[in-house]
């Protein structure tokens, strides 16, 4: 199986690829983890991971700056219906629109917008940074076999506001309830970083490999 991490110049790809390799090892599965830059390689993959760090606008700009990438991703996800996993801003890009830095268009795969987390309690800081527990919304193959305490590592100031609640796979509480994972058919994304979330994070990557 080929799992490709699409690198469009957004930060720390290495931890993602190392974490996927670690997950594959513990499953004893023969997985080739590739970091790809060329959109043409997207179709060679069985599964894609779309990472993303920084601002929505910068990530969208970098991604769209690569000729042909949006068409290849649309073909992979919408026509071929192969599995994709978006991490952090990678997940946010699944939305129609992100308001950060004046706003920009997302990939529009899951209806919704990415907006700044509303905080009125001055004791709560932004970014929402650190370990928080998630609440699962429905049974989902990506959340199998997690430990009882579901802590994951977050660092973000914006949240995915899905139009249809059915696409919300998990949430957490930071003043109010915020969406931290989205799910639709073959599309899955988390606001938290599985590659930085110790055992629970590796478990989700194992689930993605087995999905």
């Amino acid at each position: 199986m080929i799992i490709s991490i699409f690198d469009y110049g957004s930060g720390n790809i290495k931890s993602v690829s190392k974490a996927v390799e670690s997950a594959a090892n513990s499953l004893q599965k023969n997985v080739s983890v590739q970091v790809i830059h060329d959109p043409k390689k997207i179709k060679e993959a069985d599964k894609i991971i779309l990472p993303g760090q920084g601002s929505f606008k910068q990530c969208a700009k970098h991604l769209r700056g690569i000729p042909g990438v949006v068409d290849e991703l649309n073909d992979f996800v919408l026509n071929k219906k192969k599995n994709i996993f978006g991490i952090c801003v990678g997940m946010q890009l699944f939305a129609d629109f992100g308001e950060e830095d004046g706003g920009s268009k997302g990939l529009g795969w899951i209806q919704g917008e990415v907006k700044k987390i509303k905080i009125t309690n001055l004791e709560l800081k932004l970014p929402h940074m650190g370990w928080n527990e998630i609440v699962l919304k429905e049974i989902n193959p990506l959340f199998q076999n997690l430990s009882e305490d579901k802590h994951f590592y977050f660092v973000h100031s914006y949240e995915f506001i899905a139009q249809d609640q059915i696409n919300v796979a998990a949430s957490t509480f930071y003043q109010d309830e915020i969406t931290v994972a989205v799910f639709k058919d073959n599309i899955f994304g988390t606001q938290f970083h599985p590659e930085k979330s110790q055992k629970n994070g590796i478990q989700i990557l194992e689930n993605f490999i087995s999905w």
């Binding site: 720390n12 190392k18 974490a19 970083h193 590659e195 930085k196 979330s197």
Partner: peptide, 11 residues
């Protein structure tokens, strides 16, 4: 840093 990041899946 590289070797550590390869083995430690925390920030």
């Amino acid at each position: 840093v590289q070797k550590t990041a390869e083995q430690c899946f925390v920030p």
